[in-house]
Design a binder for these strands. Structure first.
Lengths: 388, 388
DNA sequence: TGCTTGCCCTGTACCGGTACAGTAGCGGTT
DNA sequence: AACCGCTACTGTACCGGTACAGGGCAAGCA
């Protein structure tokens, strides 16, 4: 108990038992490398001396792997607010659990860049809804850490897991068209932080939308609408997880029942979105926004789906419980997590056999790229277009 | 490009530039230790050679800190399903972001104990709703890693952040009593995985409930109910995040309108919960369960609050949006996260000045222990007891 | 008896950095 | 000229482990 209590290390235990340091190491990390009897003796001595086990940092350095995978995501605030992101995280955690790997949430922000190049050791990384080219990602890539990109625009040869957002959105829009809707609104994100209605033409909106999912969904909606000659009214929904009705409010505010402009008249009016008759249906970026739209509709005395059809996206846990239950596009978030973790574990394993610090290129076969399907789930929030 | 491409390290760069290894290290980690001109030269050379920066594992070992804090939680599946846990995680992440520290989700499960003592390096840990005495926690504690316990039963001298669940629950129960309710149901978790009504006396239920929050809330409810001589009917809600109505269903199934037993008759009937008249009010462990209870009530044609009052707990994001809006007990999850991270950062800082591997005991002052208040939020889901 | 085999254990050589205590040079006092 | 205090860089000594290639020794086998 003197002041000179040096840190207890493998050596301390080795000396106490009278074996080599290596044997103590094996007692903890490779039980099959020594006799059971000696192992027990060592473990007892360790317990007695207060040795808790190999220091993870040192082990990580020596082994070249640390037992953790990183999650790179733009904003964690964001990630924990959105139900789909959260469920995705949960799926990852669930997949990782049996492997014993930890999940490290890496800060991508790098607030003051002056800060020391903070960097945490990981054996692999999942890049999720993260602006491509971020410095953290680049660093990991160059270091040869296996990365899996999820819901990201296709990068050069990188493992990727994506959802067929575009096809899902297309199906959603087609669903409305099949019901006879011709005046269709869109409420989506990624176009700015202030709610409002877009005057810009759709093509420009696509170009403006940087984030992957919003862009793909917009593309999908437009695929179907363009083919039908329908030009939608697009409203901006702020990236805000409580006021999910603001986009719908802007959309419905913009419609002037007195106006006679027919939005079916095609892409003629170059002025963009002008006040027109109220849409009879709304395509929403997410179920959360769709739910806000339902609230907004109710607040205005609009019946859903008689007066207004509403389509969501994701099929989150609430979609089936709203009133009316939400027609939406389902994505399998669990499958996404499974695929991501699976691919990552494969890549980590492959790296281990090949070379400890080998080049980041993958000479063998094409990079594994998964695209998960989406599926339209028709519920009660959509119905035939009302007679004009 | 030859096969002999050795790993690029500090030394590689040092040799290329013609300086000592230490100087290269400083160029990355302590820019003020060398002239700007040389630093630029070194950084350029590093870039050219493909050196990405100090290896985090090695740096962690040498520095004694890795730039990450751990989150120890019983089941991550659990943690990501519950909105309150999720928001707590978000709050932690938000607090951590400006510090540049990563958040590592440590697996507490240790499935096959035979697995190598998986252990990831962290500078500190937050223990959240985790069975006390878990091996991972114990290991970190003995290693001298600062830990903050959140929503955990008070441990021996450990930093702790708690919420005054008991007072909140007491207030909730008192609120019902003030409305004249005497037949009160409780739907809570932690009593088993099958929905049903408890026959055991309340005292035993308290003893059975191991998890901290469920126990404290139960204690709080009973504080008020006991004082009023009311004996509640307790229903078990499985720890299940989709079928949140099962507890309420069991509770309401158990009530037989024909029976004449009056639960106000005090703790006389030693047989425990017998079919009695339907409760006029329900105390729920969480808002999620309260929401399920609202659904169940509606499905049975019970009006809330005219026929049945419902109280939740937590004041989650949905509580204000249900129909009717939920009376609940608010806890400030953000404050909880802030307090936890604050205490942890203090402890980490304190450890650094004291000694790198000093004893885990804290000789100075009493351990910092925070208890955050709760607050009853009365909304529309509670009202006067109906006339019998 | 001699040779192989396999089990246990040990010695050496790293893993890739950082802390800390110098040392050299240099402009400026006294 | 001796002394001082700076700034800029260097050398050494770790940080606490693990991989891998032996080496001693008893059992198995011809």
């Amino acid at each position: 108990m003197g002041t000179g209590t040096r840190k207890v290390t493998l050596q301390t235990v080795a000396d106490a038992v009278g074996v080599s340091r290596m044997t103590v190491s094996n007692a903890f990390s490779r039980p099959d490398q020594l006799s059971e009897e000696l192992r027990v003796r060592i473990l007892d001595a360790a317990e007695r001396l207060g040795y808790v086990g190999p220091d993870p940092a040192a082990r990580g350095l020596a082994r070249g792997s640390v037992g953790a995978v990183g999650l790179l995501t733009a904003s964690l605030r964001h990630t924990f607010s959105d139900e789909i992101s959260t469920r995705f995280l949960g799926a990852i955690a669930r997949e990782l659990a049996p492997t014993g790997l930890a999940l490290t949430l890496l800060p991508t922000a790098e607030p003051a860049d002056a800060a020391p190049a903070w960097d945490v050791a990981v054996d692999g990384g999942i890049v999720y809804s993260c602006p491509p080219g971020s410095r953290s990602i680049e660093r990991l890539r160059r270091r040869g850490v296996p990365l899996v990109h999820v819901d990201q625009p296709p990068d050069d040869d990188a493992l990727a897991v994506n959802v067929d957002d575009r096809a899902g959105a297309r199906a959603a829009a087609q669903h409305l068209l099949d019901f006879g809707h011709r005046r269709i609104g869109i409420v989506t994100v990624g176009l700015g932080d202030r709610a409002g209605v877009e005057a810009r033409p759709p093509a420009e909106l696509v170009a403006t939308t940087a984030a992957h999912a919003p862009r793909q969904r917009l593309l999908g909606w437009l695929d179907a609408l363009d083919a039908a000659g329908v030009r939608p009214v697009v409203a901006r929904q702020p990236d805000n997880y409580v006021d999910t009705h603001l986009g719908a409010r802007a959309l419905l505010d913009a419609s002037d029942p007195a106006a006679s402009v027919d939005s079916v008249s095609g892409p003629a009016s170059a002025t963009g979105a002008v006040p027109g008759p109220r849409p009879t249906a709304v395509l929403c970026f997410s179920d959360a926004i769709a739910e806000g739209t339902l609230r907004e509709a109710r607040a205005r005395g609009l019946r859903v789906p008689q007066d207004l059809s509403v389509v969501g996206f994701d099929d989150n846990g609430l979609a089936g419980w709203t009133d009316p239950p939400l027609t939406t596009v389902r994505q399998d978030v669990d499958a996404k997590g499974r695929a991501a973790v699976g691919a990552l574990l494969d890549a980590i394993a492959a790296r281990r056999v090949r070379a400890p610090g080998s080049p980041p290129v993958r000479p063998d076969g094409p990079p594994r790229r998964v695209v998960l399907p989406t599926q339209l789930v028709a519920r009660g929030s959509t119905g035939p277009a009302p007679h004009a």
